[in-house]
Amino acid sequence: MGYIEEIRKLAGSRPLILPGSVVLIFNGREEILLQQRVEPRGVWGLPGGLMELGESAEETALREVYEETGLRLNDLTLFNLYSGKNYFVRLKNGDQFFSVTAAFISRSYSGEPSVNLKEGMDIGFFPLDQLPAKLVGSHRRMIEEYKQAKNPHPPSK
């Protein structure tokens, strides 16, 4: 049993604060890697997950990316930290939590993306202007923030 499961046994469905990491992984064409998740079924998201006891945010990112995609990251740059009331989640089973998510960027990796069937249904790179419709809301906001930071002054219409 993992740390979160142990805490859930004690806290029930009451709100918890759960730290984790995600990574915006880009290939040479500036396409972003997304994973189609098993839960919530069919929704796409960034590779990442929750921190284990004793891990740093960077270690969480590296571990989760490897577990979910088979990729070994060669670089990791902190992009932003996301927390607060806008990151409250209530799961179908009634469990509640506030996420504190470190978002990293990586452009150098080894291996080929592969699906971990325990956590994913599909995996692939997407152009930033062709993201899947069913995308984790907070991950869409992170990607949009990245796009805005990359191009702070979009052309006026």
Rank of each mutant, 00 (worst) to 15 (best):
L73N: 07
N86A: 07
E52V: 09
F104Y: 01
F126L: 12
M1R: 11
Y82A: 02
G137E: 11
E30N: 15
L91S: 06
E67Y: 12
S108E: 14
F98W: 03
V23D: 00
G54R: 10
L78V: 12
S138C: 04
Q36E: 12
A61Q: 02
L46N: 02
L10Q: 14
E58M: 14
E30A: 15
G124V: 07
E5N: 06
L34I: 06
F97P: 04
L91T: 05
L24P: 00
H153K: 15
A57P: 00
N116Q: 14
V23F: 02
E119H: 01
G94H: 06
G94L: 09
I32A: 03
K118Y: 12
L24S: 02
G20W: 04
I17N: 01
S99F: 00
P19S: 07
L91E: 07
G70R: 09
E31D: 07
P19M: 10
L62D: 04
E112Q: 14
Q36K: 14
L91C: 11
G12F: 08
R107I: 13
R90L: 14
I7R: 13
L135N: 05
E6Q: 15
V136I: 13
D122G: 00
A61D: 00
E58G: 00
K92L: 11
E31K: 12
L50Q: 13
D129F: 12
V38G: 13
N74Q: 08
H139G: 01
E67T: 12
V65I: 01
R41T: 15
F125P: 08
A133R: 07
S138W: 06
Y66G: 05
L53R: 06
Q96C: 08
D75K: 09
R141E: 03
P15T: 10
G20N: 06
I17R: 00
N93L: 10
Q148W: 03
G49K: 11
Q35E: 08
D129C: 13
L91N: 10
L71S: 12
G124N: 11
N93D: 13
E55S: 02
R8G: 05
G94E: 03
T60G: 03
E145N: 09
L76S: 07
E119T: 07
G70E: 03
N151C: 09
I7L: 15
T60M: 02
H139Y: 03
R90V: 14
L34Y: 08
R141C: 01
V43Y: 11
F126Q: 10
V100W: 02
L18E: 02
L76P: 00
E52T: 01
I123C: 07
N86K: 11
G2D: 10
F126W: 14
